[in-house]
Design a protein around this nucleic acid. Structure first.
Length: 805
DNA sequence: ATTATCCGGGG
DNA sequence: GTGTACGGATAAT
């Protein structure tokens, strides 16, 4: 009867539950510190939700079919940060919660927390964090799982070690693709690539001459699928990694398995690979978190990347300095039909994609781990969350552990009406276009987070009834006052984020650990996302008054800095949101620093004005030539000689490198050498080079992204004409393709004068086109500031127009 | 300007 | 599964 209880130390990687004997059993999968994969069951957690109103008897009586209330616990929790009597209503099964909740609602009881998932509720209430070292007192039990299974008596964590070296396996497939068609019902999978620690394999079902030694040939597609499951099981990964595998590889594998009437029992409980969701799919494997790096990159990493495209190729290039193997995708199906040694290139291509994915995973692992540790949810969930959800769940877990009842998600009507709520934005002091010397720049450090923390902004502290005096803030929406006695949820949470980050930054100075660096970054972005979250219509903790007060205080503090500067005789050049640019003129840097100290003395709490830097010269350019109102278009020269350029066009849309290069060089000459004449001569030399066709061809390439397929454009612009040319010669060019072209000499419209970069020759590009449409527009506003007209610039003063050159 | 719609990414 | 979109860019009004 009695079995031996053992102590297991393990890292939980995945969590789920199953029903056994009419009861929900939490199932944790993970790896022990000595490397064994295990499964731990916990049958001591009961599903519940929270009700305000009703009586114990009435709640106990709620029942629909077999769904029923098992017990009711009277308790006190905070509702909108105010202590409130409520009930925890326990039910027989997790899926009974929505049913019983509906019955309770019919009786007009206020229901909460009925949509907090069972496994998440477990992690919150039991204070557990995935991927963190866990100690379980447990006994071994018989099971059909692929791994040793134990029933837990007690599970605890000390939040020390984290699973920083998970055993990862990357997967990628290649498919039969006639006419660029991706159709999992018709076209088979040709190859499955796997890449792990000391493991490389491409599985396929045709042989070809001179194939690489990591290629394994199966008899059929079905055999290849079975072999894939077998190899994954043998490798026993902690995490299965892919790129857009939620949207492509796993759904495709699943569909092909269905086609062959096969199951893909990848789960550690032998359950099949599951494809969830309707429009945005998720591929789930029980016990093995599936990490789709594409989703993580697009939702979390994107804002720190330069690239516009989140393709594996572009992201690998930026983060790893490595790229996909260049192949002609259209050749794959032809080679498959008649295999030659050339087909091996596609196996190499397949494996390279797996390797990039594997390397990318390790590059991004510190960030993923940082969020898992902060938010306390499983890696599978964190991987797929948008910023708003990361903030929301950070709040949910913290608030819940502090006894707060989690607000409901807004209904459709509430959300629609919230969308109409507009918040008055930041203050902008528009600069007068001009060339300036001696600029000091200050900015408020983490302005919005520090305001929220310092002014105790929170949904539960706004216009509290416990203190009627205290500072107020005027906004378009009314005057708001925040409690002086109780610390609010938002303010407490954000203060904590700021303080923990300060501590991590201190540690980072001694130890440049990438995991620490990622934690610091994660804390920063979470803090910076709070303001946006408060005004986000679908947010549970929505608080428009809080958001409105935050920007109002921001405007107040930036005005305060500007007014103090003016009263001390500084000229204010420009200001936007959290920064102030001062023109020093006769004053020194020391005077400016003294001013900063003076401003800082008056600031409350965590708020602080930072000295961003001193710039010997800077130019502010108007958005439209010759007019005022230069918003966010300026260039500064730092003391170390670096140019800081804001708001000028970049080579992304319809701009050539020659235009950008010329613009940068002009800014450099103007700011560093202060030599207008030299800048003018430089532009003239470029114009001359364009006329004489001596500027290298690759500087003239113009890039434009196709927004739709070529046949859907009403008007055929140059980029559409190029796409048509590409198609005519057999290249693919559909929606999303970035087309590259060069404008060449000739008659007619621009679209009749475009060529692909590899078709055009040095002598045939149209210099005049580049002068009028690329180079001049890029620099004319800079010269307008310096009092030089287009005509003067081009050396054509006196002529009637540019076109007469 | 503000509001709808489309699209990514994979072969 | 006690559930679910998202965010950017372009086109349309």
């Amino acid at each position: 009867m009695t079995r031996k209880t053992t102590t297991l130390t393990f890292f939980p990687t995945d969590i789920t539950y199953h029903i056994k004997d009419g009861k929900a059993v939490i199932t944790l999968f993970g790896r022990t510190t000595d490397g064994t994969q295990i499964c731990i069951l916990d049958d001591t957690f009961e599903p519940y939700f929270t009700v305000v109103g009703g009586t114990e008897e009435e709640l106990l009586a709620l029942k629909q079919d077999s769904a029923h209330v098992t017990r009711v616990e009277k308790t006190t929790r905070n509702l909108n940060e105010t202590p409130t009597d409520c009930f925890h209503v326990f039910v027989d099964l997790p899926k009974s919660v929505p049913l019983i909740k509906d019955l309770a609602r019919e009786k007009e009881y206020d229901c909460y927390e009925f949509d907090i998932l069972f496994t998440r509720r477990y992690l919150i209430d039991r204070n557990l964090t995935p991927l963190v070292e866990t100690i379980a007192e447990a006994e071994r039990i018989p099971s059909k799982n692929k791994v040793e299974t134990y029933l837990a008596k007690k599970i605890t964590q000390h939040r020390t070690n984290t699973l920083t070296k998970p055993r990862a396996l990357a997967l990628d497939i290649e498919t039969y693709n006639p006419d660029n068609k991706l159709n999992s019902k018709q076209n088979p999978i040709l190859m499955v690539g796997l890449y792990g620690d000391d493991f490389t394999r491409v599985i396929t079902w045709k042989d070809w001459p001179k194939r690489s030694d990591y290629v394994e040939v199966c008899a059929s597609e079905a055999d290849m699928l079975k072999r894939t499951v077998e190899l994954i099981e043998q490798y026993a990964p902690d995490m299965l990694v892919g790129y857009f595998t939620d949207g492509f590889d796993f759904p495709y594998l699943s569909e092909r398995a269905k086609h062959h009437k096969l199951e893909l029992p990848l789960g550690l409980d032998n359950s099949p690979l599951e494809i969830l969701g309707r429009s945005e799919k998720e591929a789930k494997i029980c016990g093995i978190p599936h990490i789709d790096l594409f989703k993580f990159v697009r939702r979390v990493i994107a804002r720190s990347l330069k690239t516009d495209s989140y393709s594996l190729d572009a992201v690998s290039k930026e983060l790893l300095g490595a790229q996909k193997l260049p192949v002609d995708m259209n050749a794959l199906f032809k080679l498959w039909d008649e295999p030659t040694s050339e087909l091996d290139v596609f196996a190499q291509y397949n494996l390279q994609d797996c390797k990039l994915t594997y390397d990318l995973f390790h590059k991004l692992l510190p960030t993923l781990l940082a969020f898992v540790r902060l938010i306390h949810l499983p890696p599978f969930d964190i991987n797929r969350m948008a910023y708003s959800m990361l903030v929301e769940w950070y709040l949910i877990v913290l608030a819940s552990r502090q006894g707060e009842i989690i607000p409901r998600k807004p209904g459709y009507n509430t959300e629609s009406s919230r969308i109409k709520d507009r918040i008055q934005g930041a203050f902008v002091y528009e600069p007068k276009p001009g060339l300036y010397s001696g600029i000091a720049v200050f900015d408020y450090r983490s302005l919005y987070p520090s305001i929220i923390a310092s002014h105790n902004i929170s949904r539960g502290t706004v216009n509290c009834s416990c203190c009627t005096d205290g500072p107020t803030i005027e906004t378009d929406r009314g005057t708001f006052r925040y409690c002086q006695k109780r610390k609010g949820l938002f303010a407490r949470t954000i203060s904590n984020l700021i303080l923990v980050r300060a501590d991590i930054k201190k540690q980072l100075k001694k130890n440049k650990d990438p995991f620490l660096a990622a934690q610091s970054e994660a804390l920063k972005v979470l803090a910076n996302s709070f303001y946006g979250y408060m005004g986000f219509a679908p947010a549970r903790f929505y608080c428009i008054e809080c958001a409105e007060s935050t920007t109002a205080w921001a405007r107040h503090y930036i005005h305060q800095a500007i007014d103090t500067a003016k009263s001390r005789g500084f000229q204010v050049l420009y200001s936007d949101t959290d920064s102030v640019f001062l023109l020093l003129e006769k004053k020194t840097k020391e005077d400016a620093l003294k001013l900063m100290e003076e401003i800082n003395e008056k600031l409350p709490g965590l708020m602080e004005l930072d000295y961003e830097g001193y710039y010997p010269s800077g130019i502010f350019v108007s958005v439209k030539a010759g007019e005022g109102g230069a918003k966010k278009k300026y260039a500064l020269l730092s003391e170390t000689g670096d140019l800081k350029i804001k708001g000028f066009e970049t080579v992304r849309r319809n701009t050539s490198y020659i235009a950008k290069d010329c613009q940068e060089r002009v800014l450099e000459i103007v700011l560093k050498e202060r030599d207008t004449e030299k800048a003018k001569q430089y532009v003239r030399s470029i114009i001359d080079g364009l006329r004489k066709n001596t500027i290298p061809l690759d500087k003239l390439i113009i890039r434009t992204q196709l927004t739709k397929d070529t046949d859907k454009y009403a008007s055929v612009g140059p980029h559409v004409a190029v796409a048509q040319r590409m198609k005519a010669r057999g290249d693919s060019a559909g929606a999303g393709t970035i087309v590259k072209y060069i404008v060449v000499k000739g008659k007619g419209k621009i679209r009749d004068k475009v060529k692909l970069p590899d078709e055009a020759t040095q002598d045939e590009y149209d210099g005049e086109y580049y002068i009028t449409n690329q180079v001049i527009p890029a620099v004319e506003r800079i010269f307008a500031v310096l009092g030089i007209s287009e005509e003067d610039l081009a050396g054509t003063a006196g002529q009637s127009s540019l076109s007469s050159w």
